[in-house]
Amino acid sequence: MKRLEPLKKVVAEALGELDGVLALRNAWGGVAPHLFCREGELDGLALWPKYPLPRTLQLIQKAHPESRLGIVARGCEERGLIEMAKRNQIDLEGIRVIGLACTAEEARICPCPKPYPSILTHMVIGERIEPVADELVEEFLAKSSEERLEFWKRQFSKCIKCYACRTACPQCFCPECTLEDALWVEIGRIPPPFPSFHLVRAMHTVGKCVGCRECELSCPADIPLATLYALIRREVEEMFGYETGGDLEAQPPLVLPMELES
């Protein structure tokens, strides 16, 4: 509880200068994103479970481009905003980021490279803790090639092609999604033929995935997608020296011609 009250104060103060602050709200017996516009609403401010807020912020900003908005962002949400800004999906000029650090318990359920924001804001509510390593990644690296194939075949055979991983992802913005193109992913086949759907999705997260885990959290078949994308993120760092969501100036590797790389 020691984050909630300080956060309420900070948001209340921000509302004096902003048109609205996007955060989570207790309502209807559950928690959902909400645009707080008046201090009176802050009684319902909530912290967990988290939602893909950058997507919602983009939605509101597109409808009201001149508005001054705030967002209560965790580490993953900040990284998401940075990657979206690089691709002109969001305008960071009109946005104030209010930082929220994850607790040890939250970081344990939801491991990521950095459980607190540090680039778009220096004001962070809550204690900055050490990142928790994803055990599944280490476990997976120890598997042989045959074990890996068998593992993913089994996992992907559970897929019901609900597109939740794509829809919930804050980085997926393509109006015409490759995964909906019948040429690559045939219509009417459940589970989608191995390995097209998932490896195409994995390829498209290169330089974009910030490790927010929304894909895995919204998968009805409990496929460990975040682990696969975390493995790929490590490769991207090694191969291109690109830390996804870590630097506002660094350009995404796949779109950059090689002579412009330093």
Binding site: F140, S145, L149, V206, P257, M258
Partner: peptide, 23 residues
């Protein structure tokens, strides 16, 4: 001009993804 630059980056990372998938 730089079409092959894209390929130069795409193919290695795709190979890594295939490796992680067990192919």
């Amino acid at each position: 001009i730089n079409g092959n630059h894209r390929t130069a980056k795409r193919i290695p990372i795709l190979k890594k993804i295939l490796e992680y998938a067990g192919i």
